[in-house]
Design a binder for these strands. Structure first.
Length: 530
RNA sequence: GGUGGCGUGGCCGAGUGGUUAGGCAGAGGCCUGCAAAGCCUUGUACGGUGGUUCGAAUCCGCCCGCCACCUCCA
């Protein structure tokens, strides 16, 4: 690995929802890495999904923000501990009331898919596995830890007990609630500081009559009939939604940590409640840790699809697999890395309009990255000589600008624009790459890929997905194409262009192959499938 | 009603006081049997209005429009 930290003095700046400004992301901890030189150690928590269905592209926009934060930190030479949870407990669809039907999202999903799953646990397991598959398909790196809410039940119960002991929570006939009044800072993160606005919001459905304040939220729900239930000091029941993230974050990252990320909808109530819980659970309130338990908050804005809110009823609702699964497995066969590129082509903090057009552009861009890599690989395989490395210094400068853009509040559009200059530079080289250029190109591609993840997969485990890439074809198909091209070459030599064009039409229209005649032969490739 | 954000050329999207963002599409050219691919060149912009300033897309006011959250949708 190159010693990145010295090469780039730039701070990693990120908008902080808590302070409402862009500020340096400053890891509190320095860790001795390798040769003993201490490096910043970023420790953060990214809210993951509830696994009651397949994750959609909007979910992944949010997960990609965490992925890019991690990649940028690593590119700066930082150490990273990155926790991303899986919520595999179904929480009530209405927090304050016991749903008359006693149902939550997981239970509803089970009802709809009862034939496929024996119980909610099977359903959760299935969708957790699907999540991880999609995660890899889009080339997101695995988090350091991926905890599940059900694995932290004892911790959640203990946390609720502690909150009760400390006077931050109280029990009613129906459950245990956090007392918002007991935590003066409530509302600071989201700006929802007025109790009135909550009451005025018109959501005043059936609430627990014993609740002391409309803002109070559930920590534990008593419900011996719930599909998922655990034994607690308050009888059988299940935990409130917000407590799981507090408990898992504290379990793996401690009482204070650097950063917490999630979708914009989580700012309130989820993260607001998490702050209330974390601060109330904290023991080290002294100065040694100083400041809030979670210093930096980053939230990803929702994406829209073709200018509209993504929703099932509008027919513009896409899961990763709808788009990126190969055609023979029920998807659209879109290159997963093109989908990834599309999802990061807007800055995380601005509304992003996901369109087919952008997807098509991205597919082309990803293919160009690949073609450049293939050219460089070929030059290296052929042991190309030459030490004229003019491209190298330019590529270094390009990479520096790419990283600098990422450090500027994850300005992915600017970063991608900078990186694309490298592609233009390398594509502009007309003759075969010399050895030095090819090596520089490979180095640059590797670094750029480590940062943005759009060139190829990091690990071997996703090779299966890679084989389904557009352009990757099986031998039988290739032989068929080559045979037709040979026939066409004959026809062209005879001057029978009618015949030659008929063959080309067949290749293009029926076999989705692009035919490209060069001075020294004919190349072909699969058309993009977007 | 409260809170946060946005409005840039045909489209997507950078830029936050004076200097080209970039991509895609479009136009012209090179190459080609014709195409495709590729390469070169290239036009169009800052929601409206008032103000600050030598100068504003960029700062401030007002207006219009759009989006999100306000109890579980990332």
């Amino acid at each position: 690995m190159p010693d990145a930290p010295e090469a780039h003095a730039s701070d990693f700046r990120l908008y902080n929802t808590r302070t409402r400004q862009v500020e340096p992301l400053a890891p509190a901890e320095q860790t001795a890495a390798g040769e003993g030189k201490p490096v910043p150690h970023l420790r953060f928590y990214a809210c993951g999904p509830t696994v009651y269905t397949f994750a959609h592209i909007g979910n992944f926009r949010s997960f990609l923000t965490a992925d890019l934060i991690q990649r940028t930190a690593r590119a700066l030479g930082w150490q990273v501990t990155y926790v991303s949870n899986v919520t595999d407990v179904g929480h009530l669809s209405e927090d304050d009331l016991t749903d008359p039907a006693g149902e939550d999202k997981m239970a509803q999903a089970l009802e709809e898919e009862g034939r496929r799953f024996a119980n909610v646990y099977d359903l959760a397991r299935f969708y957790t596995e699907a999540l991880v598959e999609d995660w890899r398909r889009l080339n997101l790196r695995e988090p350091t830890v991926r905890p599940r809410a059900t694995e932290h039940m004892a911790g959640q119960i203990k946390a609720v007990e502690k909150l009760v002991e400390r006077g931050h929570a109280y029990e009613t006939e129906q459950g245990v609630y956090f007392s918002v009044e007991s935590f003066p800072g409530y509302g600071a993160l989201s700006g929802n500081e007025e109790a009135q606005s909550l009451q005025a919001s018109g959501r005043d459905t059936v609430t627990d009559p014993e609740k002391r304040d409309p803002r109070d939220f559930a920590l534990w729900k008593k419900d011996p009939d719930h599909l998922m239930q655990w034994h607690s000091p308050w009888g059988w029941g299940f935990p409130g939604w917000h407590i799981e993230c507090s408990v898992m974050g504290r379990a793996y990252l401690g009482e204070t940590f650097d950063l917490h990320t999630g979708g914009e909808d989580l700012i309130f109530p989820h993260h607001e409640c998490e702050v209330a819980q974390n601060e109330s659970l904290r023991d080290n309130t002294g100065d040694e840790s100083g400041g809030p338990s979670i210093r930096h908050w980053a939230h990803t804005r929702f994406l829209q699809v073709e200018g509209e809110k993504m929703s099932k009823s509008k027919g513009n609702f896409f899961t990763v697999r709808d788009l990126a699964l190969p055609r023979d497995e029920g998807g659209e066969g879109i290159d997963p890395l093109a989908l990834r590129l599309t999802l990061i082509s807007g800055q995380y903090r601005k509304p992003f309009n996901f369109t087919r057009k952008t997807l098509r552009d991205s597919a082309q861009t990803v293919r160009r990255y690949r073609e450049v890599r293939e050219r460089a690989e070929k030059a290296l395989e052929e042991d190309a000589g030459g030490d004229d490395d003019r491209a190298g210094t330019q590529l270094d400068a390009i990479y520096d600008r790419t990283l600098a853009a990422m450090c500027d509040d994850l300005n992915t559009p600017a970063a991608l624009a900078a990186a694309y200059e490298g592609i233009k530079l390398l594509r502009g080289i007309e003759e075969e790459m010399n050895g030095a250029t090819a090596r520089s190109a490979m180095d640059w591609l590797e670094k750029t890929n480590a940062l943005l993840g759009i060139v190829g997969y990091d690990t071997g485990e996703t090779d299966r997905a890679a084989k389904k890439e557009p352009g990757a074809v099986d031998d039988a198909f290739a032989q068929q194409v080559e045979a037709l091209l040979a026939e066409r070459a004959d026809a062209r030599e005879r001057g029978d262009y009618e015949r030659a064009d008929a063959i080309r039409d067949r290749l293009e229209d029926e076999m989705d192959v692009e035919v490209m005649d060069n001075p020294d032969g004919t190349d072909w490739r699969r058309k993009l499938s977007v």
